[in-house]
Simulated assay, not measured.
Amino acid sequence: MGIGKWIKPAALLATAGILLTGCGLSSAASYVPAAGPGSIQKLPGLPENATMSVTSKNYTEQLVLGKIAVLAGQAAGFKINDLTNVPGSQPARELLRSGQASMMWEYTGTAWMTYLGHEDGIANQQEQWQKVHEQDLENGIDWGKPAPMNNTYAMAVRSEAVEKLGGITKMSQLKGLSPKDLTFCVDAEFNSRLDGLNPMLAHYGLTRGDATSVPDSNVGVYDTGAIYSATDSGDCNFGEVFTTDGRIQALDLTILEDDLGYFPAYNVAPVFNGKFLGQYPGMADVFAKIAPLLTDKELRAMNLEVDVNGREPADVAFDWMVKQGFISKP
């Protein structure tokens, strides 16, 4: 998900080789429930020994998405090599690039800035996907169509305070609030980085450190995980969140629309090793059915089931795939 996705490429590259060596080509969480047939059918003419290797990173959202891919591959008739739960973005990317993995779910903004080395993200979601798709073809990596879910930064407000703050729904409405109401909870990185809080405020016509706008005393710096509860309890009116975090739903927080396009796009998409997709082009169609149903709301609900209710990612993915009719219970 969002945490760590703006880390500079050099730092990740420095650890990639070590992590690849350490993780091995096996998963610490390869369990998935047995699935029956659904709308995903075995690919026509698929050899009996056809293998599909699925990788993912090692946090909740990626594990859920990885298990969705595993179940889709099984339903399409593949023997699955489950390489989900890899520690780090670069090691998972290297498995895909090298052909040791057939596919994974990846975020457009992560690829654009972390893998392809661009300093600035693109807020327009379609444009960001298109540019990543075009450039990554040179690396032997083929991006499927993106999902609606966009796991980027956002500002959230506790829902019971929305009316008190004038029915606020958009970030452009921040400028119309009194300075006493412009209180923010952010983490240390977002507070200080060049593409963090201060330029975000400026983008929306506000000034950090100005007593008539956003006084410095209005900004509280918290550990990332504490921001959600601090926002919910009213320590601040606006908290820095990631848009698909399950705590948004659990705490009934409301995300403000980034209507002037400050935050880069981080849509998730199925990403394939080019040789694998060339051999089995039908898998692009399989994932083209799944991706449109992966919305921010759906991922928040699935992440909540794992992070708040303690369920296994594989079970959450299985129930979602059954609900959508892609597979059935045996």
Results as ranks from 00 to 15, higher is better:
residue 199 P to S: 05
residue 220 G to F: 10
residue 207 T to Q: 14
residue 138 E to C: 00
residue 164 K to A: 12
residue 309 N to H: 12
residue 19 L to D: 11
residue 282 G to D: 11
residue 45 G to R: 08
residue 128 Q to L: 10
residue 103 M to N: 00
residue 112 W to D: 03
residue 313 P to Q: 06
residue 91 P to K: 06
residue 303 N to Q: 02
residue 277 L to M: 07
residue 223 D to Y: 13
residue 268 V to L: 11
residue 241 V to H: 05
residue 18 I to Y: 14
residue 310 G to Q: 00
residue 46 L to Y: 04
residue 41 Q to N: 14
residue 287 F to P: 00
residue 181 D to I: 10
residue 137 L to N: 05
residue 68 I to P: 05
residue 292 P to M: 00
residue 25 L to D: 15
residue 263 F to R: 02
residue 263 F to C: 01
residue 156 A to I: 12
residue 34 A to E: 14
residue 168 I to G: 00
residue 212 T to R: 11
residue 248 I to L: 13
residue 62 Q to C: 13
residue 46 L to V: 06
residue 59 Y to S: 12
residue 257 E to I: 12
residue 147 A to T: 05
residue 24 G to V: 05
residue 168 I to L: 02
residue 141 I to C: 09
residue 39 S to N: 02
residue 241 V to G: 09
residue 301 A to Q: 13
residue 201 L to N: 03
residue 276 F to M: 10
residue 271 V to W: 05
residue 307 D to V: 15
residue 94 E to R: 15
residue 257 E to T: 15
residue 307 D to S: 14
residue 325 G to Q: 04
residue 38 G to Q: 01
residue 128 Q to S: 14
residue 14 A to M: 08
residue 27 S to M: 01
residue 94 E to T: 14
residue 11 A to C: 06
residue 204 Y to S: 04
residue 61 E to K: 10
residue 130 Q to A: 11
residue 298 E to Q: 01
residue 302 M to W: 04
residue 295 T to Q: 03
residue 75 A to F: 01
residue 200 M to G: 10
residue 236 C to Y: 03
residue 259 D to G: 06
residue 223 D to E: 15
residue 246 G to N: 00
residue 309 N to C: 03
residue 25 L to P: 13
residue 254 T to D: 04
residue 307 D to H: 08
residue 40 I to S: 01
residue 187 D to A: 02
residue 285 D to F: 10
residue 298 E to W: 03
residue 256 L to I: 02
residue 240 E to I: 10
residue 163 E to V: 12
residue 138 E to F: 08
residue 64 V to E: 04
residue 277 L to D: 04
residue 222 Y to G: 08
residue 41 Q to F: 14
residue 278 G to D: 09
residue 208 R to A: 13
residue 316 V to M: 04
residue 275 K to Y: 06
residue 319 D to Q: 11
residue 29 A to G: 07
residue 211 A to W: 10
residue 284 A to V: 03
residue 18 I to G: 12
residue 224 T to D: 15
residue 313 P to W: 00
residue 294 L to G: 01
residue 311 R to I: 05
residue 288 A to P: 05
residue 182 L to R: 13
residue 23 C to I: 11
residue 141 I to Q: 05
residue 316 V to I: 02
residue 238 F to V: 01
residue 107 Y to E: 15
residue 285 D to H: 09
residue 137 L to F: 08
residue 327 I to V: 10
residue 21 T to K: 11
residue 295 T to A: 01
